[in-house]
Design a protein around this nucleic acid. Structure first.
Lengths: 184, 184
DNA sequence: GTCTATAGCACGATAGAC
DNA sequence: GTCTATCGTGCTATAGAC
């Protein structure tokens, strides 16, 4: 694999684990097996490399969601499949995690990929809910955008509860609780 | 106010804003108006001060939740009041925020107050749901612990979505979506 | 109980050789 | 395109005077 690719992937991993403030260029270089000069030859610095890595992680997250949301079955089936998909719960969400980082949220260049990813997710979920509403799978009173936000929030909040508890259990409970509300 | 108290409160504020990794003893001292020697006289270091500050924030969060959950009205009223309470959405949750910090999650001393706070919250919410179930406010099929986890997750995830978007709107939507599911 | 001085190290970045 | 050397700064913590 080329150096640039190794740098980007190492940055993705480190941002996931340690966040932006907690990730140093030195650590990135060590993980990528690249030298100081090499990194600064390909990227202007930590911020630019982080931007590319976050965009990549956002794209991967969207693709993973589309696997269930754009799959076969009813709207409810697809949402259930999306909620039930296996996840590395205790690692948390590679994109959502970065919203805790003040330097990411403060920099429009770094926040943009977060915004794009979650806006896409909420929009896509709302589309599926709207389809299900049309097919009478959901009550006529259902507001697709609100329910979409609720679904996305349960996953993101589930990660928070699980990491606080040190076990995936609260995540699973939160998802099950939502499924019971939706499929009631 | 005494120096110790100013140190603790300043640490609470900085942990909320910048997290554990992003908060330096120097910044704490500046915010508290205390010198280097003063801080190290009262606390063994950053970790001990953070532990005290996180415990304090957890206690405050529990007290704030109990204001609605232990208030007047039906179980549903109290849960609705808790979900609808005003929050500084774009600041996020002072406790939940710290689950993103690897150094906090990795240190049992620092993770303990997170675990205690969210375990208390989920337990307390489950109690209220169970009450409501007894009073036929919730279906007999409702699992109180699961619904409690879902409620807590919607709030924590709502913060994530809002910070990614740069506006409180997704938080409000997620909460409204949950209220519509519960009060359907 | 609070001060200043200093330690030893990592940070993010640049320079210039090869 | 990658290397090593170096810059100036800030980190967490300790020492010892007052």
């Amino acid at each position: 694999m080329e150096t640039v690719e190794r740098l980007i992937r190492s940055t993705q991993e480190l941002l996931w684990e340690r966040g932006y403030v907690g990730t140093s260029p030195k650590a990135i270089q060590a993980a990528a097996g690249a030298g100081q000069g090499s990194m600064y030859h390909h990227f202007s610095g930590k911020a630019e490399l982080a931007k590319v890595a976050i965009e990549r992680s956002g794209a991967e997250m969207r693709a993973a969601a589309e696997e269930q949301l754009g799959g076969a079955g009813t709207a409810r089936d697809r949402i259930t499949a999306y909620l039930s998909r296996e996840r590395e719960v205790l690692r948390g969400c590679r994109v959502g995690r970065l919203t805790a980082d003040p330097d990411v949220v403060a920099d429009p260049e770094l926040r943009a990929p977060l915004d794009e990813t979650f806006t896409w997710l909420r929009t896509r979920l709302a589309e599926v809910v709207a389809e299900g509403k049309q097919a009478n799978e959901f009550p006529a009173t259902t507001d697709p955008e609100r329910l979409a936000a609720t679904i996305a929030a349960v996953l993101q909040g589930g990660y928070v509860l699980a990491r606080a508890a040190g076990t995936p259990e609260p995540f699973e409970q939160a998802v099950q609780g939502l499924l019971e509300l939706i499929n009631a």
